[in-house]
């Protein structure tokens, strides 16, 4: 169960990193406004900091 939770958090964390970067790339190509980019990055940041502590393996 713990393993499943960790893997799920890891996948969500990875998705949040993609969401973090993607808006700025779309902004570069003129597909998003800067305001939209900022809000999407904020959402992705929250998601990352919620999921990453569970998803990252203890070293």
């Amino acid at each position: 169960m713990k393993n499943v939770l960790r893997k799920t958090a890891g996948i969500i964390g990875l998705v949040s990193l993609i969401i973090l970067l993607l808006p700025s790339a779309l902004f570069l190509f003129g597909d998003l406004s800067l305001e939209q980019v900022k809000w999407m990055m904020l959402g992705a940041t929250l998601l990352w900091f919620v999921c990453a502590p569970f998803g990252m393996r203890e070293r």
């Binding site: 700025s24 570069l28 980019v37 940041t45």
Partner: peptide, 22 residues
């Protein structure tokens, strides 16, 4: 710091892309 590191690297990259577009 370990948790923030990958996030921080991508935010830096985003800074560059956004600045370039501006």
């Amino acid at each position: 710091a370990n948790i923030a590191a990958p996030w921080m690297v991508l935010v830096f990259l985003a800074f560059g892309l956004i600045g370039l577009k501006q």
